[in-house]
Simulated scan of single mutants.
Amino acid sequence: MNGLLDPPPEDRAPVAAPARTGADTFADFYRREIGGLVNFLVWMGADLADATDLAQETMIDAYRGWSGITFPRAWARRVASRKFVRRVTAAESAAELDADSPLLPVHHDTAEWEFQDEVIQLLRTLPWRQRQVMAWTLDGYRPIEIAEELRISPEAVRGNLRLARLALAAHIRAPGEGPQ
C-alpha cells in the first residue's frame, strides 16, 4: 500500500497467505507492511501521529519475537489494534509528528488528500466495533478472517460490516435523496 487509504492491489496474494517460510526476513516484512499498518491504524481511528508510533512499536515487538510469529501480517494488525485500544482508553496524548517522516506518503494532490481526510472523518463517526471491522475490511481481510482475528463470529462481523456500510451511506447521501 503506497498511499493512505489505497485499496489493496487486485494482483496481491490473498490476505490469508500461508505461514511465513524460513526465507522471510523481518526486513522484507517491515518494508512490505509498515505503510499498510499505518493505514490500518488510521482506519481504526488513530490520528497519523499515533498510527505511526503504534506501527513502529508493533514492528519492534515483531522484530523481538520474529522467530515465533507464524502469520506476521495478521499478528501485526492484531497487536497494533490492541495497542491502539490501550492508548485510546488511557487517553494518552501524542507527540507532534515530524512532517518528514519516511513512514508517511507525501501528498501532492490536494483534492486526493481532502477526499482521504473526509473518508477518515466518516470512519470516525462509526461505533468502535463497526470501525474496527471496516478497518480490517479496508485492509483486504475477508469476514471469516476478521472473525478469527477478533475472536467473534463471522455473522457478527458481517452484521457490523452491514451496519457500518449503511451508516456511511447515510452520511454521504446528498440531501433530498431519501431518508438520512
Rank of each mutant, 00 (worst) to 15 (best):
P8D: 06
G35C: 09
S93K: 14
A167N: 12
V106Y: 09
A13E: 09
A170F: 01
L123A: 05
E155V: 15
D50L: 14
R86T: 00
E149A: 15
P143W: 07
V88S: 09
W75I: 02
W128R: 13
T58L: 02
F40K: 02
A76N: 01
W75N: 09
E148C: 06
D24L: 14
D53L: 10
G45Q: 02
G176I: 02
G178Q: 03
Q116R: 15
I144P: 00
A111V: 07
Q116V: 12
Q116Y: 04
A147P: 06
I144M: 11
N2D: 12
R86G: 01
S153D: 09
D47H: 05
Q116N: 09
W66S: 07
T70W: 01
L104A: 05
R124G: 08
P8Q: 10
A169N: 10
R165Y: 04
E57D: 15
I172D: 06
A76W: 02
G159L: 15
Y30K: 14
P102N: 10
E96R: 12
A76H: 02
T110S: 08
G35H: 11
R151M: 15
V119R: 07
Q130C: 11
A94N: 06
A55N: 04
D24N: 10
I34T: 08
R142I: 02
V42R: 08
R64E: 15
D28G: 13
R64M: 10
S67P: 03
W128I: 10
A174K: 14
Y30D: 12
A174S: 13
D24V: 13
L123E: 01
A147N: 05
R158C: 10
F84H: 07
G176D: 00
A27Y: 07
A94D: 11
R165L: 09
L103R: 15
T110I: 09
P143F: 06
I69R: 01
I34K: 08
R73N: 06
A99P: 13
E148S: 13
L126R: 02
A135Y: 02
A169C: 00
P9W: 01
S67D: 15
A23W: 09
L104D: 05
L97K: 05
M59G: 07
S67M: 11
L104I: 15
A95W: 06
I60V: 15
P105A: 08
R82G: 09
Q132E: 14
W43N: 15
S93M: 14
P143D: 05
P175N: 00
